[in-house]
Amino acid sequence: MKMKKTDIGVVAFMYLVCAYFYVQTVKFQADSQTYPMFTITLLFGLTTLYLLQMLVAAKKHGVESGVDTIFKDFQPLQFLVCLLGAIAYVVLMHYFGFYIATVIFMAAVLLYLRVPILHSVIAVAAILALVYFAFGKFLGVKLPVGVVIKMLR
């Protein structure tokens, strides 16, 4: 199997994680260092082993990008809208509470994904009802009210 260039990113990320945890761990008390050091060494060793495997594969079979297989049929705009939408949803929830944020988030995403209006309304209503009864009533979870709504009250 050819070496994938994308795996360089994986290896670099793992080394970065090791470096970050190492820098932090050396500041701990000696006793508290034992186990984190063991896991850092383990991750470092395995990452190095994988790097060696990659180099051998590159020498034997050559190198390929890997991007085209990993991101085959990737829809960048749709993905970005969903990802940013999810992040915005959490922020909205913090300020405006669960119910308002959910309606806005679901309506926006469903609209963007071109779901028919009737289906969208049913989906939003079903989720709100499910959360209200399962979490609100059955589990007694007080869902976020929102900073703004709290202030208005």
Binding site: Y89, F105, V109, R114, A123, A126
Partner: peptide, 11 residues
């Protein structure tokens, strides 16, 4: 999937 995406996110 268009319906599943926001529904699962909320859950």
């Amino acid at each position: 999937d268009a319906i599943l995406i926001p529904c699962v996110t909320v859950l």
